[in-house]
Every structure is written in structure tokens, then in C-alpha cells.
Amino acid sequence: MTNKQTLVELNHISVTAGSHLIVDNVSLKIKEKSVTSLVGPSGAGKSTLLRVINRLTDREDGLRVEGQACYREKCIYTCCQVEDLRQYVGMVFQKPCVFPGSIERNLLFGVRHHKKMNASEIPFFLEKILKQVHLWTEVKDRLKKSASILSMGQKQRLCFARVLAVNPEVMLLDEPTASLDPHSTHEIESLIHELKQEKAIVLVTHDLVQVRRVSDELIFLSAVNGTGRVVESGTPERIFNRPEQEETRHYLSRHRIEEVKL
């Protein structure tokens, strides 16, 4: 883990909405080929931090981000155009969102704006991406059909595929299994395991069992008066078994940590 390159680094990031401090002085590092989980109670600013990393906070009125956020050691606000940054840092949201239209249109939705593809390339590209998310055998005969007929789990894998089609180095996952059944959750977790062989993944989740199953690094955030702060970070094994901070211990005990102890 220590030899891995840092892809994203947040230094003393604070986010305010009007006069309310949402995130206070958060610093963290996201390393390549690993899964970093952000865990903590609602209101700890986990999703806000994800949105800071790919600058989705830019257009939110009244939201101010202070501190330094870097991608590959360069400030995310000056290194490149925001559209380019989002190519390198993709995001999957909690609720699977498919665009109206076919499965094929959904898959090509992002990538066709970034890269020119010959018509002859497209079938091979679709097959490669769909195989990557284990959706190929389920949809190969209905690529031209509406994506809205897919199950929730399939829709979420399609959302993963749509992001993977753009080929980001970092994937931000905002509670990607929160609205899925256990079987679909298992499929997404398997996918996360495979993706971390080549990408950095930041996972926001409330599912501590999932954190134990997929994470290499855990960052625990607290929410005091609606303000999120990093309490401690480390490997999931260490934090689940030997939390150093009382807040972490209290949160884990409330969430029946005895069930997930390693």
C-alpha cells in the first residue's frame, strides 16, 4: 500500500454552505489500485467530499470550497478543464440513473463526447465494457432496446459501464449499493474488487460489512452539529478491532460492529 502512488490528495479542505460549515479541515489521500472507504454518520460530509474531488460542487450556489485539492499532484482547479478532470475522475451515484433511450446510447453517452469512434469500433467497444461489468450476456441481444427495462442492479452496472467507457483513473462511488438487493450488491462488490486492480476507488457507504469486504483503507468521519471532520483513518481491520478514538468506537458499537469484527 505504501508504494502505491497517490492520485488524489485533499489538504485542509473546508466546505461551507452560506454560513454553515459542512466539512471542516479534511485532509486525505487516495492511492492508486486501492479502495478507500469514507464512513460516518449522515451529515458527515462524505458525499460532499466526493463532489469536491470531481468539482461537482462548482455550480452549487452558495457552496464555498477552501483548501487544496490535487489530482496527480496538480491543483484540480488549475491543472485542466473541469470536463477533462471528470474524465479522469468518474462518479457513480446512489440511485441508478439511466438516460432515456437504448442501452447502447447510455453506454456511449459520455465517451462519444470525448473520443471519436468509427462505427466499426463501437460493437467491440460495447462488448468490452459490458463484459467488464458482467452485463454482456444479459443484454447482448437487446443493446438497441430501452435501458429503462433493466432491473435496478443491471441499471447500476450499466451506470458503472457508462463511467468505465470514459476510462477514468479514479472512481468515486456514492453509496452505489444503497438501493440494491443483496444479490445485486454482491455483484457490485465483485466488480469493485476487479476494478481496483487498475483504478483508485473511493467508496461512500453506510454498510460496514461491505467496508470490511472491499476496502483497503478506511477514513472515519464524524458529524458534530452538522459539520464533518476526519476522526481517524487506517486499515479496516485496525479500525474495526482497535479504534483509537472514542467517536469511532461509539459509532461502530452502535452499528453492531460485533457482527463484522474480523
Binding site: 461537482l56 474524465q87 440513473c97 438516460f99
Partner: peptide, 21 residues
């Protein structure tokens, strides 16, 4: 729906591209 816009933005589409798509 806001999700459409957020998803399109997160895929790296610029505002004119989001308007068109």
C-alpha cells in the same frame, strides 16, 4: 430530474453538451 444533469456532468460533459444531449 437533477440526476440526469449530475450524471451527465460527472461524465465530463460541458454545459453546451449537456444542453444538446
Amino acid at each position: 430530474p437533477r440526476e440526469y444533469i449530475d450524471n451527465a456532468r460527472a461524465l465530463g460533459l460541458s454545459t453546451p453538451q449537456i444542453i444538446r444531449s
